[in-house]
Computed example of a mutant assay.
Amino acid sequence: MPSDNKGSSYSYKSSGTNTEGNHYCARDYGSAAPNQNSYHYSNQDGSYYYSNSDGSKYYNSGKGEASYQPPSSSKK
């Protein structure tokens, strides 16, 4: 079973390229993970987006703009 850069094991759910030419990869971290179904997109325009297993989210526009949402934040 592969593991990510934090040592967490996962299995691949799906990956590929959508009709717009953007790459995606979905991973299953199992029931113990805060976000069991994480994924990332790498887009043709240079932007990319991660929804991580710990519940954090990261977006980079590819043009010098980025945002990060830590795992502890919650929208009310």
Rank of each mutant, 00 (worst) to 15 (best):
Y58M: 03
N60A: 00
N43I: 03
G55R: 01
D4V: 02
G16T: 09
N52M: 06
Y50V: 04
S11H: 07
S73A: 12
Y41D: 04
C25W: 10
S72P: 01
G55W: 01
S51A: 12
G55Q: 08
S74F: 05
S74G: 10
P70Y: 05
H40E: 12
G7E: 14
S9Y: 09
G16W: 05
S9A: 14
G7M: 09
H23I: 11
S14T: 12
S3E: 15
S15A: 10
Y12L: 12
P70Q: 08
G16R: 08
S42C: 08
S51W: 01
P70T: 11
Y58K: 04
C25K: 15
P70F: 09
Y41A: 00
T17Q: 11
K76E: 03
E20T: 12
E65I: 02
Y49T: 13
K75I: 04
S56H: 09
S8V: 13
Y12V: 15
S38Q: 05
E65A: 10
N52H: 06
S67V: 03
S51V: 10
A66F: 09
K6C: 09
D28M: 01
G16S: 04
Y59H: 08
D54V: 07
K57N: 12
H23R: 15
D45H: 13
A33D: 05
S61E: 00
K57A: 11
S9H: 14
N5K: 15
G46E: 02
Y49E: 14
D54K: 02
S47Y: 00
H40A: 02
A66E: 05
S72I: 11
S3H: 12
K57R: 12
S14C: 05
G21S: 07
S73R: 05
P34R: 13
S56M: 04
